[in-house]
Design a protein around this nucleic acid. Structure first.
Length: 452
RNA sequence: GAGGGUGUAGCUCAGCUGGUUAGAGCAUCAGAUUGUGGUUCUGAGGGUCGUGGGUUCGAGCCCCAUCAUCCUCCCCA
């Protein structure tokens, strides 16, 4: 028997971690609910067809595929070998795998909308908080199983949706006490740039390259563009674009000057201007923001934590026709996502996790003997009915041990019910934080411990 | 997919240019202490040094392979 272990990039969550994660999830959920979003849950696995081709070439590789059942059936061995060859040649084979773990929550949502568009009331606002899986190489801030918290509005082209989603970012991170920069851009502007630079078909290459500007610098970006086969003139236009700086409104002006004659650029700039008019300085324009998922067509969002080195902790954008991929055209939408696991890491690193989260049950009843514990247990049951959490130590043991147990479980009150207490029908209650002892009649215990 | 670091007790780690029987702190258990903890003291248990080869009189230490894990790039949350 080998030592038990976890699959790479996955984690167990102990009690204190679960409580902290719940705190983050609840904070996000409450804001979503307050904005009228409805919950949705979808299966951990989807048909492979549903997911393939939606996240770009890189994304396809990172989808966890599930091996079909029944391959051990000898009559299928020949077929399985043929299918395996097909996969090795870079194609997919339904014979070996036709299901996969979901890679994000947006595509499953689009699939859901496409399947149910006749029943839904539009605009349809849903939120979804579930784990997703990626066959990525784990590293800091990157896991193979992690949670996303998405909110999307479909069936509306109104930019008020973008505004609302940006305010959700603001609210959640304010509640969590994380300083963030919320940056927006518009894919239409990037499309216009690619078009103006004479490489409309190179949109992806161009956006991927310029997205790295603040990370690798202008020279390296140019190198990458050259290596992608762009001409000097093309790169010159892109360089002008990248040199745009200043406040958000200044950026808008300069971008207008550079790309203004392009209709797409006009539209994109207008949209950014509208969204920005709702915010003072908490939302800023970043013309180099690109984001990888290739279904975005309009506004794109990205949120990064200030004060800490971590990838983006939230992102999203507008897509014109996501359900079109599933045969239901004409359902535009926009959505955002929170990366819970990274938010957790940020909160821990900044030591901003509230300390009230790891409170244990309210009371530990000390076990002071077989006889006495029967009375103690009865009284404990009454407390529980009154909504007070507590437990009875599982066996008579030295006080030292029982105290330590209470301490480790962050239990606030020790309740002593021994022969003397039973005689007087009065429990002794010790506040383990202050050390103060108090005698409380059995009948008054629930009332005294309520709300503590 | 490319590159680097690290694997020694339950946990965090020492372990000298290769040299007797591999250590510490914390944790666990027992006792000092049979009804009031967090301190202190005493004692105990616990290790095929990730795994498999090789070099050597001798390997935790050097070499090769392999597995695991962490980090960087790519990409992303």
């Amino acid at each position: 028997m080998s030592k038990p272990s976890l699959p790479q990039g996955t984690r167990d969550f102990s009690a204190d971690v679960v409580r902290k994660r719940q705190y983050i999830l609840n904070t996000i959920r409450n804001v979503y609910e307050s904005c009228g979003f409805e919950p949705l849950e979808t299966p951990a696995m989807e048909n492979l067809d549903t997911l393939m081709g939606k996240y770009g070439e890189e994304g396809d590789k990172l989808i966890f595929k599930i091996l079909n059942n029944g391959l051990d059936n000898p009559s299928k061995h020949d077929q399985a070998r043929t299918d395996f060859e097909t996969i090795l040649s870079g194609k997919n084979s339904k014979g070996l795998t036709e299901r996969a773990l979901r890679y994000d929550l947006t595509i499953p949502f689009a699939r859901y909308v496409a399947m149910n568009h006749g029943k839904l009331t539009f605009p349809f606002k849903r939120y979804q908080m579930q784990p997703v899986w990626r066959a990525d190489r784990p590293q800091r801030g990157r896991y193979r199983e992690f949670w996303q918290c998405d909110a999307d509005v479909v069936g509306s082209t109104s930019l008020l949706n973008e505004v609302e989603l940006a305010t959700i970012y603001q609210q959640v991170f304010e509640k969590l006490g994380i300083n963030v920069s919320i940056r927006i851009n518009n894919r239409k502007i990037l499309a216009a740039l690619a078009h103006t630079a004479g490489g409309a078909d190179r949109l992806t290459d161009i956006t991927v390259a310029i997205d790295k500007l603040d990370k690798i610098g202008l020279e390296k970006v140019k190198e990458e563009l050259i290596s992608k086969g762009l001409s000097t003139e093309q790169i010159q236009i892109i360089e002008q674009y990248l040199s745009i700086s200043g406040s958000s409104s200044e950026k808008l002006q300069q971008a207008e000057a550079l790309l203004g004659q392009d209709a797409d650029a006009q539209k994109g700039l207008e949209e950014l201007r509208y969204i920005l008019s709702f915010f003072s300085d908490t939302v800023e324009i970043d013309l180099t923001l690109a984001r990888g998922l290739n279904y975005y067509t309009g506004t794109i969002f990205e949120v990064k934590a200030l004060d800490v080195q971590m990838g983006s902790i939230g992102g999203g954008g507008r897509y014109d026709d996501l359900t079109g991929l599933f045969g239901v055209p004409g359902v535009p939408g926009v959505g955002i996502s929170f990366g819970v696991d990274r938010i957790y890491d940020v909160l821990e690193e900044l030591k901003r996790m509230p300390d009230h989260l790891n409170a244990g049950p309210t009371a530990l009843f000390f076990n002071m003997g077989e006889q006495e514990s029967q009375t103690a247990f009865r009284i404990l049951m009454e407390l529980r009915k009154a909504g007070i959490s507590g437990e009875l130590y599982h066996e008579p043991a030295k006080f030292d041990k029982q105290f330590k147990y209470a301490e480790r479980k962050n239990i606030r009150y020790a309740v002593f019910i021994g022969s003397q207490e039973i005689e007087s029908q009065t429990a002794e209650v010790k506040d383990l934080q202050t050390g103060i002892k108090e005698k409380i009649p059995f009948g008054a215990l629930a009332a005294r411990l309520a709300g503590r």
